[in-house]
């Protein structure tokens, strides 16, 4: 008898507070599985951010620092500079990383800071109840874009991975999705690579993961994944955008 699937050690026993069907939980699990597989649980420091994943420190069974909104890459920089042989990762949403924390993520990437960033993009501010995010799609209805995002007034969504790919600092940049089992398997491979890149000292690594928000999108969990596939994937293509194999 072989165990095909069990709870990873890098997750605590605490049940997630996320809404039913929210794929934050899937992404948490993938990160934890990678930590287990790489054998780095006791050597890792996580940085939680502000947003739906604010309570990530309750779930990742590692040392954690809770950062101010958007500042996780700066906090991770401080940790990594003090403890260069530890694995340091941040877990941030789109409001945190692509809006209030734009300066911190861009400069951590530009410095080639040897940290791993998990960037969860669900195209809205989930925790505060579904407001317009920098990643909200054109025309997408949110509580602060009730008639749909009007790009002439609210501007255009930011493709963070593509933007960061113009920099020399990042060693690994990828975008994944978790809208079906095959994509979940691919996402895990990318997350694993993003940790390996750090352990090999190659530089900054970030994986953007497209994630569903059934509650604020007003869709059932399965419908939300279909909506993600139909609407987010064309705007935010998945794949590896930068993948250094060795230090430059």
């Amino acid at each position: 008898m072989a165990t095909m699937f069990a709870r990873p050690e890098a997750l605590t026993a605490n049940p997630f507070h996320y809404c039913p069907g929210c794929t934050h939980g899937v992404i948490h699990r993938l990160v934890a599985e990678v930590i287990d597989e790489l054998g780095i649980r006791e050597n890792t420091v996580a940085v939680a951010s502000v947003g739906c994943s604010v309570l990530a420190y309750n779930y990742f069974n590692v040392d954690v620092q809770q950062a101010a909104h958007g500042r996780a890459p700066a906090v991770a920089t401080g940790i990594k500079r003090v403890l260069p042989d530890r694995v340091v990762f941040t877990y941030q949403g789109d409001g945190d990383l692509a809006s209030i924390g734009t300066a911190e993520i861009v400069h951590a990437a530009a410095r080639g800071e040897k940290i791993t960033v998990i960037f969860v993009n669900n195209a809205n501010y989930g925790m505060t109840g579904g407001q317009l995010a920098p990643t909200t799609l054109p025309g997408q209805v949110t509580t602060t874009s009730p008639s749909g995002r009007d790009v002439t007034r609210a501007g255009y969504p930011i493709r963070m991975v593509e933007m960061l790919a113009t920099l020399d600092g990042p060693a690994y940049l990828a975008r994944a999705s978790v809208h079906n089992p095959a994509q979940v398997v691919k996402a895990k491979k990318m997350l694993r690579r993003a940790f390996e890149v750090q352990m090999q000292g190659l530089g900054f690594a970030l994986v953007e993961v497209l994630s569903s928000c059934p509650t604020n999108w007003g869709l059932k969990p399965v419908e939300a994944l279909r909506w993600l596939e139909k609407n987010m994937l064309p705007y935010y293509p998945t794949g590896e955008f930068k993948c250094l194999q060795q230090a430059v």
Binding site: V75, T77, G78, K80, R81, V82
Partner: peptide, 21 residues
Amino acid sequence: VFLQAESEVAAINMVYGAAGA
């Protein structure tokens, strides 16, 4: 380690991380 941060905001948060470590 001397690091010139991108802003005062980032600098104090780097201090937070380093102090926490």
